[in-house]
Design a binder for these strands. Structure first.
Lengths: 410, 410
DNA sequence: GAGACATATGAAAGGGTATTTATTAAATAT
DNA sequence: ATATTTAATAAATACCCTTTCATATGTCTC
């Protein structure tokens, strides 16, 4: 007895409820007549659906109020989506921090708590920071843990979705844990764990420039490099949840994908934050300039920012370094473009603060390597991308359960 | 007024009709009770649906006949899908041939006509061969052009889907035409034109080893090299219908994607049929052996077959050539695997006859270049893959129109 | 300020679908 | 020949959507 798509008239009601809900969540408060024209349903039907959803707590009546143009005729009752009917939690847990975001059912962030974890040396430390951040965010939002409808978390590394175990997380020592199980001990609701680049792609689709892109590639470019692939409205995870792992591209003849001691792949070693600093230092040796003092503490991602900042000021060495990095990056980006032909490529994480100089350099370098020049942009979501994407994933999960299930009450 | 998914009870009927039809097309003749249990619908509902579909000509009653085990109880009436209710046409048009396939609504091929076009020097010649092949196939199938429900054609090059114009077809001089418009002059039904590698991927999903693969990459490997990407049940075409154009991968440092005088990309020049012959000739120069007499007429794809055949016999030079080609191919395959992480990669077209030696050599070479070893197979569909895929595409289109549309008769 | 107009709401009727339950029909097994 | 088993038919019930008509409640005009 599968819960297939067939069924009686109640299925009809569920479909139409979803339509009404979608129309209402997109726009602000609407009258029943507005809803009728927007959904294509008849007014009586909309009335019934709204009544049902109202009883379920998903809708609320709102006083007309003189909020708009005074129309003639009997004023309509307005109904709005009760975004506060439930909340979801989006988590971004990385090497240095734990970020917990609480959002309502429209995806609006209502609370956020960032916990620094640069001192963490074990997964237990990291989990402790996560718990602190979660407590803080929930308190700020004024809700209890049991009120959370769905949770999603983003983490670096390969994740066994949907099980939620971190299979391979180079860079985080001891982070090979059953993260989902840990989270389920705190939350009494569905928990998902995903690769961070994938989640950032989701966020970009919702908040960023990718709203009308059918195929979107988000490239997480910081210390590590990875890609999230979004096709239609669906994340492309691949057979082993390893899709988009371009950090392990081995472009040089004779190179292999084997990770180094820090767990980084060959492409990450070529264009990651450390490589950017290295390129800057290298160019400064020849040309001098602002980057001459760039010390060996280049592991700090802010070192890369210094290179981009100097390039923006016209420093010769820095400009050369940026071009070197852009050329290398283009060689890894080109295969992605040829294989997927995406509508848009968004570059995020640390390097997203690089500015337009890097972007144009990449465009120049990648142009001759592809058939059609791609749309290429820098993310504007900053450090929140992963957590916002986690909210999106949790939201999508919650929505599948919020609609009243079809079936005869008898 | 969009023809959205909402609607009244008639939509319900359409959904359930589709379920009944699917169940019936998958298995042989079934009784109404069988259909009820398989679809989860009630028997009376199935009765109504079947009656309606029968009136539409899509179903036929079949005499019980002593075809099975004698069951007790009243014998059930059996109903079957009328595959002969309509026919679709799948076309493979390439540089040297025109292949037209006629299939019924289950996708079973009922006629096939291959027209040699090695002497064709213009698009007019090629179209003439196509028309001859089409006439022959339709005559063999015993149907008229006006009886065809849907047509799909596969061609090399970039295709502007869904418009059906060939935008860029290096290798076929003068083939930059509005192929779909040409075909529409012959057929009074929907016509689709697609990239040949994409269609071969569809065929592999239906007939080949990929039936349970969620993500499938078909690699067309002959004189030209291209990939078709199938995700879920959907072709991934990309923003400019340029997805999978891996023939233009520029792997060497300093190389560009620019096509040569024959319109071939850099990766095609490295591993295409001609490169295989070249590698064989090169190795024979050093080692001698069976390939010593390999003349300069290496443009013939059968030259590549000679290399593989010699390698199968243990010829030293040929084995070395195969390994050289496998190493090069692996370098282009690895990015595809890292980006998409497919369940299965199928290698088709000319090289699919290479045998297992090439396959294991590729596996060995690509292993160190990826994170998870891929499933890699040779196609077993031979020359029919593209035409069979075209049938699949035409079928999918036809099916959307065969179901009785919902809506009140009033 | 009273009436006309415009829009929203509500109730009732009509048609379409699906399910459950009961009844009848047609085979085989005892 | 009767019982059993399974299939088809029919009736009853419930749900859903739409159309149509009547009613309510504002604004605008005179």
């Amino acid at each position: 007895m599968e819960a297939s798509a067939h069924g009686g008239p109640p299925l009809m009601r569920q479909i139409n409820s979803a339509h009404v809900l979608a129309a209402l969540r997109g726009a602000g408060p609407l009258s029943l007549s507005d809803l009728a024209t927007r959904t294509g349903l008849s007014r009586p039907t909309v009335g019934q659906v709204v009544e049902q959803l109202h009883a379920g707590g998903l809708l609320a009546w709102v006083e007309p109020g003189q909020d708009g143009l005074p129309r003639s005729g009997r004023p309509a009752r307005l109904v709005r989506f009760r975004a506060e009917a439930a909340h979801v939690v989006g988590i971004d847990i990385g090497r240095h921090k734990a970020l917990v975001t609480v959002a309502d059912l429209t995806g609006t962030v209502v609370a956020e708590h960032r916990e620094d974890a640069s001192g963490a040396s074990s997964s237990a430390d990291l989990l402790a920071a996560l718990r602190t951040a979660a407590r803080g965010a929930l308190a700020q939002a004024g809700i209890r843990r049991t009120d959370v409808a769905s949770v999603a978390a983003g983490t670096p590394g390969l994740v066994d979705w949907p099980r939620g175990a971190v299979m391979l997380a180079p860079g985080l020592p001891g982070w090979k844990i059953e993260l989902a199980r840990e989270l389920r001990r705190s939350f009494r609701c569905p928990v998902q764990v995903e690769n961070d680049a994938n989640l950032a792609a989701l966020a970009e689709r919702r908040h960023g420039l990718a709203r009308d892109a059918r195929t979107l590639v988000f490239i997480y470019w910081g210390e590590r490099v990875g890609a999230g692939v979004l096709i239609g409205d669906q994340l492309h995870r691949g057979a082993a949840n390893a899709a988009g792992e371009i950090g392990f591209l081995a472009l040089e003849e004779g190179a292999t994908a084997a990770p180094d001691h820090f767990g980084r792949g060959p492409f990450e070693r070529m264009v990651g934050a450390e490589a950017i600093v290295e390129a800057g230092r290298d160019a400064a040796k020849r040309h001098g300039g602002l980057l001459a003092g760039l010390g060996p503490d280049g592991l700090d991602p802010r070192g890369a920012e210094a290179v981009f900042a100097a390039a923006a000021q016209g420093d010769l060495a820095a400009v050369e370094a940026v071009h070197t990095i852009a050329r290398r990056f283009a060689r890894g980006l080109a295969p992605v473009l040829l294989v997927l032909d995406p509508d848009l490529v968004v570059i995020g994480a640390g390097v997203s603060r690089a500015g337009s100089a890097l972007l144009t350099a990449i465009r120049d370098s990648v142009g001759p390597l592809t058939l059609v020049p791609p749309r290429l942009e820098l993310s504007r979501l900053g450090d929140d991308a992963v957590a916002l994407g986690a909210v999106e994933l949790a939201l999508a999960e919650a929505e599948t359960r919020l609609l009243p299930a079809p079936g005869y009450p008898a």
